[in-house]
Design a binder for these strands. Sequence first.
DNA 1: CCGAATTTTCAAAATTTATTGAAAATATAT
DNA 2: ATATATTTTCAATAAATTTTGAAAATTCGG
Lengths: 168, 168
Amino acid sequence: MKLTEARQHFISSWGAFGTHWGINRTMAQIHALLLISPDPLTQDDIMEELNISRGNTNMNIRELINWGLVERVLLSGERKEYFTAEKDIWKVVKQIVKERKKRELEPMLQLLDKLEEVEGDKRDRHVKIFVDTVGGIKKLGKQADKTLDVMIRAEETWFVGNLLKMFK
Amino acid sequence: MKLTEARQHFISSWGAFGTHWGINRTMAQIHALLLISPDPLTQDDIMEELNISRGNTNMNIRELINWGLVERVLLSGERKEYFTAEKDIWKVVKQIVKERKKRELEPMLQLLDKLEEVEGDKRDRHVKIFVDTVGGIKKLGKQADKTLDVMIRAEETWFVGNLLKMFK
DNA sequence: CCGAATTTTCAAAATTTATTGAAAATATAT
DNA sequence: ATATATTTTCAATAAATTTTGAAAATTCGG
């Protein structure tokens, strides 16, 4: 397979993959493109390569910056802004985990805390199943939260090494 | 908080949560409702409780069955079908992981295998970054795949125990 | 086999989400 | 300060996804 074709495949699959994870296609594609670009790109480079509008490009780049996956680069003597993505995949994964934990897991745990305090008699089957279910989710969620905290701080070698030990 | 209100909250949050994970709102809500229902429910029960149409209910129940999260229950002497969800959250999580691994991670790894064989000289910066990026993702993906395999087979007590050991 | 109950399908409608592109805002060189 | 390049915003539009509901198919008791 030629490089040009392989790049196309990679970008479109990364985009499709993203949509299964609540990330919009364009954002994932821009990320993919930056991942496989040896040098920083401008907005115009990205627009041209992916055939998307200026507005769309701009918004999704900013969103990637919010996620901590892309950063602005100022090239001396250049007026335009350039963008580049973190290439170390382990760092990328940790960053995504960190953000999703903050945006989704933590608010969910807060809600569950409140819901567990529902008033009513546990001898009522409906109360019992509700409290038990919420409690069960909370317990697992808290464990996941702790585990992810450690993962976020870990080095890949340490982490993978430990997983191998744990599982063999 | 009263039970009725708490149930509403739980169902709607579970739905919103689902949409961040590529699962449609209704499917997640039906799942939530079944999780907190002590007894199996019929399609009509679900339609009424969530105010959704018959077709929508039917399609999403079937999808939940495909995911292995809900099952049909036949109550003797009843003509209607009843549905119930697995209540053990650890089993639920394992089932979701198992499905997503099969549907998403494995196809992605297959693609990466092919993409890594791109032809071209690695002294070309574009070839090099492409091969390195794809290789890096593949390596981490394979590790995740193995780890998830073990997790899917694990008991919660064993798994949590090991994580605690690992991280403390 | 008939008829009623129940489930499933799917084209059309509604809703949600993503994208465009031009105008406004901002930044920079001279 | 002005002109020009560049970035950002956002209302309008387009596209994708979800939902409806009625018709078709299926199931099952008698």
